[in-house]
């Protein structure tokens, strides 16, 4: 299915560096015209493409440890693009692109059945329960490169696909067909003050993301780097967001294990 020179954009998030500061979330909101309401404390009603989770080792004081885990759309490949959400959409409003590996979401096609939300184990898909409204004048800060979603549709992180589109335009203008690694970076990657997020083409051995996790193509994209893991790898989602952590309990929190299973199952 994959073509010769197709790309597979993916992300590596170093949880040792991530400080949970929330810059990725806010950068994403500002870049992608995420609406906001007076009360956004019910996170299950709030739209935020990037969400930072707090993980804990569940030990009492003073052995408590915490880790912060930013979670964009995992852009699952599943097997041959069969991500959990794509195949369930009845109206073909979401799709897997073999050239980029990005799971698209077309808001104007979506009619809000929410099957994809039910299918996604990462909760990356969020519904527009309300009309997105901006206080008078604030709509001036909207980014014209990202369409504003209407009430009643599902939305999710797009890996800032508009930046890819714009980068390609620039390349075409300069007579190039291909773009460089640094020409297409997501807003969260760019904003992260700790430099915890790396973005690039997982098919390209020259790209940093490839070098950081060394995805094993023969083994469903599993990382060869022992510090790397993906969320819920055992479900077969074949996600394109990798996490790095030097802490065993953090890596183990990335997936479900039976009590009988050993400590180093993820490797």
């Amino acid at each position: 299915m994959e073509k010769e020179n197709s790309k597979k954009f993916g992300m590596v998030i170093d949880l040792d560096k991530c400080t949970g500061c929330g810059s990725c979330m806010v950068a994403c909101m500002a870049e992608n015209n995420i609406p906001f309401r007076e009360d956004e404390t019910d996170k299950l009603l709030s739209v935020s493409w990037m969400h930072v989770y707090r993980l804990t080792n569940v030990k009492p004081f003073p052995d408590t440890e915490e880790c912060y885990l930013p979670r964009p759309c995992q852009h699952c490949e599943g097997h041959h693009g069969h991500s959990p959400c794509v195949s369930v959409c009845p109206a073909t409003a979401t799709d897997y692109d073999m050239d980029t590996g990005i799971v698209s979401q077309i808001y104007t096609r979506c009619f809000g059945c929410r099957y994809c939300m039910a299918a996604c184990p990462y909760h990356v898909r969020q519904f527009n329960w309300w009309d997105p409204l901006w206080p008078d004048g604030m709509e001036k800060s909207l980014n014209p490169n990202v369409s504003v979603r209407m009430r009643g549709v599902v939305e999710k992180c797009s890996f800032c696909i508009h930046r890819y589109q714009l980068a390609k335009d620039q390349a075409y203008m300069e007579g190039r067909r291909e773009i460089e690694e640094d020409e297409y970076q997501t807003a969260c990657t760019q904003a992260c003050p700790a430099g915890a997020i790396t973005f690039g083409d997982l098919n390209n051995p020259k790209h940093a993301v490839y070098q950081m996790v060394k995805p094993d193509k023969k083994n469903g994209g599993k990382p060869k780097n022992p510090k790397a893991f993906r969320l819920l790898e055992r479900l077969g989602t074949n996600a394109k967001v990798y996490y790095l952590s030097s802490r065993e309990w953090v890596r183990r929190a990335g997936d479900n294990y039976l009590k009988t299973e050993g400590q180093a199952k993820h490797a």
């Binding site: 109206a91 979506c110 009619f111 809000g112 059945c113 519904f127 549709v153």
Partner: peptide
Amino acid sequence: VGQPLRAWFIFWHAN
């Protein structure tokens, strides 16, 4: 559904 006015997409744009 969130967008009843385009619920017919399920037929027209069937996956």
